[in-house]
Amino acid sequence: MTYLWLSLVFLLIAALVLVLALVRAPDRRPLVRRWWLPVTIAGVLLAVLTAVFDNLMIGIGLMTYGDAHLSGVRLGLVPIEDFAYPLAGLLLLPAVWLLLRRRSGEGA
């Protein structure tokens, strides 16, 4: 299995958890209206930070990758697959918050 397929599996699982959490939330429309901008900004920041710091870490030799398992698409020195894990975290964090929050009217 290549890193790209593994990354896509993680992204798919994260997206499914978020969709299930939103389906379960009775106030999903206001949540999506409130969240789209902060989540988009966080996603852009995560992508920039991943690109900068992964390029630095790869450049100084802290990390190496076997080319046989990579797609070959790179942003600088960073394989495109490296961006999947921060994106999965970005999807999972609000999903977990939704799944664990207390609903109004529930007992203490």
Score class of each variant (00 low, 15 high):
V78F: 06
V32E: 11
P30T: 10
T64Q: 07
G66D: 15
A84W: 12
M57Y: 11
R34F: 05
G61Q: 11
N55G: 09
D82K: 04
G61D: 08
V73D: 06
F53K: 00
P79Q: 10
R103M: 12
G89R: 01
G107L: 15
I58Q: 05
R34D: 12
G76E: 00
R33L: 15
R74P: 15
E106P: 04
D27L: 02
A42N: 12
L45D: 07
V19N: 00
S104Y: 02
G43S: 12
Y3L: 14
R103W: 10
R102E: 09
L62Q: 11
W36E: 08
L87S: 09
W35S: 10
V19C: 08
L56C: 00
G59W: 06
T2M: 10
W36F: 11
L46Q: 03
A21D: 01
I60Q: 09
G105T: 14
L49Q: 03
L90G: 05
G66P: 13
A95I: 01
V9R: 01
G66S: 14
T50L: 02
L91C: 02
V39T: 12
E106Y: 08
V44A: 14
A42P: 04
V44K: 02
L12D: 03
G76W: 02
W97V: 13
P86R: 07
G89D: 03
A15H: 04
S7F: 14
G59I: 13
T64Y: 06
L16C: 14
L87V: 13
G61V: 10
S104R: 07
L77D: 07
Y85P: 10
L93K: 01
V23A: 11
L4A: 09
V17K: 15
V19I: 13
G107E: 14
G72S: 06
L49A: 13
L90C: 04
V78S: 02
L90M: 02
L56R: 01
V73W: 15
G72V: 10
S7W: 10
L93D: 00
R29C: 04
T50N: 08
G107A: 15
V48W: 09
F53M: 12
A88C: 06
V52F: 09
L8A: 09
T40V: 11
D27A: 07
L18V: 03
S71C: 06
V78N: 04
L18S: 03
M63F: 15
V19K: 09
V23S: 03
W5N: 09
L16E: 09
V78E: 03
Y65H: 06
P30D: 02
T64R: 08
L6V: 12
W97F: 13
Y65W: 11
G61T: 06
L6W: 08
R24F: 05
G105R: 06
F10G: 02
G107I: 13
V19Q: 05
L18C: 00
A108Y: 05
W35L: 13
R102F: 01
A88M: 06
L99I: 07
L31P: 00
L56N: 01
